[in-house]
Design a protein around this nucleic acid. Structure first.
Lengths: 349, 349
DNA sequence: GCAACCCTTGCACACGTGTGCAAACTTCAT
DNA sequence: ATGAAGTTTGCACACGTGTGCAAGGGTTGC
């Protein structure tokens, strides 16, 4: 019995399942101590040129890489950053993730991506999972974390950074684009173009971002004495935009519409055309986000742009801010937006 | 001196930098041994109901999570999967990543995402980085890994899975969609529609996928005795598609075009219209990938679809295939494609 | 009442790495 | 030649976890 077990053990050590090369292996081949190997791969450690060379050579032939897991075990820092997102294929989210993952890598951090799409019971289990990896911070771009799990993160010294999300009463950094300002810009522009029969298009999703944009826009319009028509159902997709146009324009002869998302706006434009409306002559449309497709020829959508690089930079600032125990100073940034004038709003008279 | 150091040490242990809760802390609070804590969080381990409850309670109040790094140190398996990708904001890539990250999570694996966008010296350093995390496998969706680094991966028992990429002579799994078949479908359809003055549009990128599609298409067309006009410069973007249309159609009166990517095709459509061509009456266009935007109203692009779910499933199959030392059986899958008929090719006469 | 058995629990070792400390070695000035 | 000063190296401990092993305690069957 033991003999068989021993044999198996040897096999394992030789070429079996456990075949990651360790510093021990390298040390043996190079004829030095394991410490020497460790120091070779630790910047600023004291090793003679001779030993360093021999170690590097041995490491190369064996294909050795430092085990980050073991290294992180000591420093309690994995330079991993957890990212929670959903609907990664939506243009705006995709750009956000693209920029963020690039910036993280540039700063020497890695990106642990968890897709929240199938999280029926909220994103709490996802955050718990991320926490197990001793991440440096958690960036939440989708879903709304309950404050209980956020407290756990803080208790473990992990910052939670919400991007275009909000959690009340919790110790999180929050970075949101200026939805209110953007909605006001849109409202102002439509009124300035002389629109009097105005609509707002959102989806059925009740995200804080959507609500803020819709409510702020409605308020501005109401101040001008106009009661806006509202559409708020379906998913946040191009197809919903079409449906909104067909549903709204069948019963209302609108001359100005604000869509809380560019994707909705593009669908709305196509739907409106199908309903026989000419843009911008009969109908002005404004979107929000400035996704790449909005600049495409058939659309030339006038929209509110949030600067992607500002957003990314703010996230990185939050991540890199030191934690001073419990009394950490949180980042609460509201990023400015601007109106990008293209061709879907009637020029000012 | 020592007193001060000790003091500092105590501070650290109390609430300082090292503030991750450990199993030791939980054990102390619950009045049991650390082993009991460990077993409580290990499925199938033997713990009495009483102890388990006390431990769970203590863990809850302290906000304890198992340290995955330490756990992985023993089993040499982190259930992490490294993913290398670039241009995550491009629709096709974004969908791929969305599906993959979702599928990974569903199977209990996590996704370590590295953005290869800024990798001037190739993706070798990125793969080295991933390797340090003892990942279960590496999925490469962008860039071409030299076989030297792949050998290192295999030496460490890590599978490398190339998606729509190719590496010669290396022990990788490769999953590619049937570019040749797709190009043939496109060529056949254009010829069937009676096109005689035919063009191929690619970008300046010399990826294997692009080359295969272009060459295979050209061969088919030449078999019919037609010499296709080729465009091959710029980035793989919508804007390049427009440029291609303006450049090509100014000097050639084409009546059929195959774009190796939907994004190029959409740009080409808009460019062609701007040049006064009517689609499909004057000009037929076929794309490749079937990204969501291709179904949008202004385009209704006829295109070659690769099944995203097939692709994801193939990747997961490869990841989950056991490694039997060196003699692993590799996955080499060519995924079928189909022609999606929409409205940019003249109906068959 | 006693033995046999099962369940629970703690001890101690292992995983692969970084690093303080002291020993060994080298260099240099006297 | 000798001591001082600096550099290099190995030992041993720490990080937080899983788990084999043996000891302890409880239950069952006779």
């Amino acid at each position: 019995m033991e003999a068989s077990s021993d044999h198996e053990d040897n096999l394992k050590r030789d070429r079996g399942i456990r075949n990651f090369v360790t510093a021990e292996d390298v040390a043996r081949l190079a004829g030095v101590s394991r410490s020497a190997v460790s120091r070779t791969f630790t910047p600023g450690a004291s090793v003679s040129a001779d030993v360093r060379l021999r170690v590097q050579e041995a490491a190369k032939t064996l294909g050795y890489r430092v085990n980050r897991l073991a290294r992180s075990l000591i420093s309690d820092q994995s330079n991993l950053v957890g990212v929670v997102g959903a609907n990664l294929s939506l243009p705006f989210m995709a750009r956000q993730l693209d920029e963020l993952s690039r910036a993280l890598l540039r700063r020497g951090m890695q990106c642990l991506l968890l897709n929240a799409a199938e999280a029926e019971q909220g994103i709490t289990p996802l955050i718990e999972l991320i926490l197990e990896f001793r991440v440096r911070a958690i960036v939440v771009m989708s879903g709304s974390p309950p404050s209980s799990i956020i407290d756990d993160c803080v208790a473990n010294g992990v910052r939670v950074i919400l991007v275009n999300r909000q959690a009340d009463d919790a110790e999180t950094d929050t970075i949101i684009s200026d939805d209110l300002g953007g909605a006001r810009l849109a409202a102002g522009r439509l009124l300035q173009a002389g629109c009097r029969r105005i609509g707002v298009v959102g989806s059925g999703a009740r995200t804080p971002t959507q609500l803020r944009r819709r409510v702020a826009f409605a308020e501005c319009i109401e101040e001008a004495g106009i009661e806006p028509v509202v559409w708020a159902s379906g998913e946040t997709t191009y197809e919903t935009g079409i449906e909104a146009a067909e549903g709204l324009l069948a019963s209302h002869d609108l001359d100005g519409v604000f869509c809380v998302t560019d994707l909705l706006a593009l669908g709305f434009l196509d739907g409106a055309r199908r309903m026989g409306r000419r843009v911008p002559d009969d109908l002005s449309v404004i979107g929000f986000d400035d996704i790449p497709q909005s600049a495409w020829v058939p659309y030339h959508l006038t929209t509110v742009r949030q600067s992607m690089s500002d957003l990314t930079e703010a996230v990185l600032t939050a991540i890199e801010r030191e934690m001073h125990g419990k009394d950490m100073d949180l980042v609460h940034e509201v990023l400015p937006v601007e109106l990008v004038e293209r061709a879907t709003v009637r020029p000012t008279a």
